[in-house]
Amino acid sequence: MAFTPPKETYTGKVYTLEIGVPPDTVRFGGENVLPLHGFEGIVPSRPVIAYEIQDIPPDDWPDTVKKPFKDVSDDPVSWAKFCRDALKARAIALRLIGTHPDRENRSPEDAAKTVRDILSAIDVPLIILGSNHTEKDASVLIAAAEAAKDKNCIIGKAQEANYKTVAAAAMANNHKLIAMSELDINLSKQLNILITQMGFDKERIITDPMCSALGYGIEYTYSVMERIRLAALLQNDATMQQPMLGDIGMYVWKAKETQARPEDVPPWGSLEERGIAWEAVTAIALIIAGAELLVMRHPKAIEAVEKVVDELI
């Protein structure tokens, strides 16, 4: 007798999101099955990986990941162009880290200028991220969202402390929005509800349950993502059907394993290879958990993940 694999039937479906301005758009989400379960339903899009760039030079990035960008990272526009033209980035994530009060404390106007410069230099789906200082982000993201008006970007991150302002800015300028909570599935759902109750379309939200790197709590992120996706698909929970973000680079490249030199820890082997592998493995784990949008740094790690996606999804 022929073997028939048992199939799960799902009642829910992940919303499809599209960012960018035609013809330079990317699309993600839309599946009605768990990750890698394409045989049970439809998976219309592959995960999108966005190259992370910054508004200021990446002084705090480890050498391994600074190196590929060393000729361009002094200027966000050249950096963005390099990612788009040389590395064929499908999307770019601009982190306005220079606006953080403990960094250069750049003004919202500075941030807006950076956004405008990039968008006038290249056509690319853009994700605009604050510095994760909830108070400062509120003003920075308003200015950045206005500067990118109608370019169909993603603005983030809206958190419990600032979601009203950030969501309003995204709504007024026709952007998508990242809603981030800190590794708590119930608060993640609550934040989505609160944002939707403001009149923000639930199909324009991306959920960020908060990322973590391999070896540094990835199991928490994995588990929250997995449970969000189960609620979305099996319980048909409309407040949990948003695509999910894995903001990977910033966590991975802080880990000891991406920085310790081989002479200090001989058994760990090549630093460069190790760092790239650390980022790639973290990303693949979160794709398996359900992430559709990833923000990453190292070109070789991204290449490795794309290859896995080619083969598995």
Partner: peptide, 12 residues
């Protein structure tokens, strides 16, 4: 456990 808890669960 049939619906995921959130503070506003009664409103949706």
């Amino acid at each position: 456990g049939k619906t995921l808890y959130a503070h506003s669960y009664l409103e949706i």
